[in-house]
């Protein structure tokens, strides 16, 4: 079983310092400020199997993005260890890696290279634009693109990288219905190829349709991991309790 695991997260904790930014003036005013510790992730233990579509849900600030960043190798965990098998393509933030003053073509090259490709990205531009349905806008500067068009461009490029593991952080929610349907199918294709997807989203219906398992985070702690319906209903229950 061990070699079927794409991602293993073992006892992982991550802390941030609050008020890390002090200025000379504020230091004089307040004297010594104790910088509080913010627990972003606390003692997480789970694994994701190869070929699995794994959802992550939780309220804003529950640690979803921090977790994805740690898996992508951007953050180093303060405790514990993360093991990853295969090539990762992180699709974490729309806009990062995109340049407004460049054309869609130049942006694809840039984005593809940031995701780890070399010059071979240049042969894939056509396929990417076709999938994103943006062929007419190839030479248009990105500043004239809508946010949905940007998301389509980013997602289509990430798919063409053909990674073993795709990390998706809520970037598809701005796409229109037809593109959502398309990315839904792309996810299914991905699964057929035994590729792994980690998907962070607030789109619960999409999660329950797609995911094999879902992880619920709350303030950096793991609350539940299991079948989408069960986890999502607990999440709904918890958030309605919060309202009261």
């Amino acid at each position: 079983m061990e070699d079927e695991r794409a991602i293993t997260v073992e006892k992982v904790s991550k802390y941030f310092k609050k008020n890390a930014e002090k200025t000379f003036v504020s230091k004089i005013k307040k004297g010594e400020t104790n910088s509080e510790i913010l627990v972003a992730l606390e003692n997480l233990n789970f694994h994701v199997n190869k070929g699995e579509m794994f959802g992550i849900i939780g309220l804003n600030g529950s640690g979803k993005t921090t977790l994805l960043r740690a898996i992508a190798g951007i953050y180093q965990p303060d405790k514990g260890e993360i093991k990853v098998k295969g090539k990762i393509a992180p699709l974490l933030q729309i806009g990062a890696g995109f340049y407004n003053e460049l054309t869609a073509r130049d942006n694809i090259i840039m984005y593809g290279m940031l995701l780890g490709l070399k010059n071979e990205i240049k042969d894939k531009i056509k396929t990417i634009l076709k999938f994103a349905e943006l062929e007419e806008y190839t030479e248009m500067k990105l500043k004239y693109y809508s946010s949905g068009m940007r998301a389509r461009l980013g997602f289509s490029t990430a798919l063409q990288i053909d990674p073993d593991i795709l990390l998706v952080d809520e970037v598809l929610s701005v796409g229109d219905i037809s593109f959502r349907e398309k990315s839904f199918n792309a996810f299914l294709d991905f699964k057929k190829k035994k590729k792994t997807i980690l998907y962070c989203s607030h789109n619960l219906s999409m999660l329950s349709r797609l995911c094999d398992r879902v992880l619920l985070l709350e303030k950096g702690k793991m609350i539940m991991i299991g079948k989408p319906e069960e986890v999502i209903s607990l999440y709904r229950k918890k958030s309605s309790e919060n309202k009261k």
Partner: peptide
């Protein structure tokens, strides 16, 4: 910084 936070570079 946004590149460093989004890609493993």
């Amino acid at each position: 910084s946004s590149l460093l936070k989004s890609f493993n570079l």
